[in-house]
Design a protein around this nucleic acid. Structure first.
Lengths: 221, 221
DNA sequence: ACATATATGGAATGACATTCCAACTATGGA
DNA sequence: TCCATAGTTGGAATGTCATTCCATATATGT
């Protein structure tokens, strides 16, 4: 990757094209499916040409993630209260990562980069509107929680894909393993193993957001 | 990897030896430093021999992580109240991952496996003692939060190592980038960029735990 | 038209994880 | 005691990638 394009581009490659193609491949085949070879094939070019527009694979992944994050966050409309807006942002992100699991992995591994900054900004603004005293503690807790859930979901999806299972079959397998644990050493885990398969990730996620929001609101209720 | 050892082992390899060697390498050189070649060299054997005792690299990473997690959690002594025990578990994990950043990556990528199950169990037990109504919501929020912070710290450390920076220099660089953002589009992030370098990850982590604990306690206070 | 900066595409290169395989070595019967 | 067998080893293939190289194109402005 050198500098910006200058040449007229009859039939040429552009950074945006490359990123869009990368997003398609990632959505279709997961993070493991994105190789420079696959990308070059889809774009009918060679791997070398791609490196003219993109620094390396991390650059590509972060940019792809950023494009989708921008679209996602842009689609969230402001709600009457900052609490509700935070919930809406959280849900939008949850659904986004549910649709594009590779994003969870990328987000969880690229600290301080743009995609995460956008999330931080949006949440930070809302927390600031609420006027929480321990502002940074609240914002960073929300962010870590969201990224944690994102990472978990991404890992689940990646594992499930690798072993050719769908989500519920995957959870079923986990539940089976948990159920076989020694109930003396693992009383809690074995007691919840049966509920694992039927739980609702999305509802759990929202419950966590609500816990955090409740704790950061002024001491009433 | 086939079955358990049976042969007398004068000068032989054992799974435990391999895992300990892997932990050393991971601690010294990070996740990127653990290759079967490096491991074979350190153990004065060949890569093939290692595969007799270990299924694949994931197996090795998970086992290494599990060994350290067991030691860590084992070292946490029960406190007078479940809340304090949860804090102690959290801090022990935080410090553990601070010392062994590779564990953050592994934990964040191996859903439902033993290392995470141990954490889940310990937290679940304490939350159960508290008697929270929305038990699962509370436990899963705590777990996701802890794994989220773990993942962030791991990513920071990994990035810093790759670029040969120490933690504070790394945060400094991030702060510089944030400070250059358009303050109109990113009012929150640019306003906190100056505080980034001097903040205390560990205190922030604990503050998040406290937020979650406070929110799950009965409605008093 | 020429010199130059931009771009391309495909062929190296170098790291790895993983698999293979040709020895080696206990162990438990004959 | 000695062999057949199953457990182990070490190192050499294999195959897949990211990344780099390089020999060609193709605009641009002079």
């Amino acid at each position: 990757m050198r500098k910006a394009s200058r040449l007229g581009k009859r039939n040429s490659l552009s950074r945006d094209q490359i990123i869009e193609a990368a997003i398609s491949i990632l959505d279709e085949s997961g993070k493991g499916g994105l190789t420079f070879q696959a990308l070059a094939t889809r774009l009918a070019t060679g791997a070398g040409a791609i490196y003219w527009h993109v620094e390396n694979k991390d650059d590509l992944l972060i940019s792809a993630c950023d494009v989708v994050i921008q679209r996602t966050l842009h689609s969230v409309v402001e709600r009457p209260t900052p609490e509700e807006t935070i919930r809406a942002v959280g849900l939008a992100l949850f659904d986004c990562i549910d649709t594009h699991p590779w994003m969870g992995t990328v987000l969880a591994q690229t600290p301080g980069k743009m995609p995460m900054v956008r999330i931080l900004e949006l949440i930070g603004q809302q927390v600031r509107v609420i006027g929480v005293v321990e502002e940074w503690a609240a914002v960073s807790a929300l962010l870590s929680y969201i990224l944690g859930v994102a990472g978990q979901n991404a890992a689940n999806a990646q594992f499930a894909r690798k072993h050719g299972l769908d989500r519920s079959r995957f959870l079923g397998e986990v539940a089976d393993v948990w159920a076989c644990l020694d109930a003396t050493a693992f009383p809690f885990v074995s007691s919840i193993s049966c509920k694992l398969a039927e739980h609702d990730d999305r509802a759990d996620f929202l419950a966590g957001i609500d816990l955090l929001i409740r704790a950061m609101l002024p001491v009433k209720r």
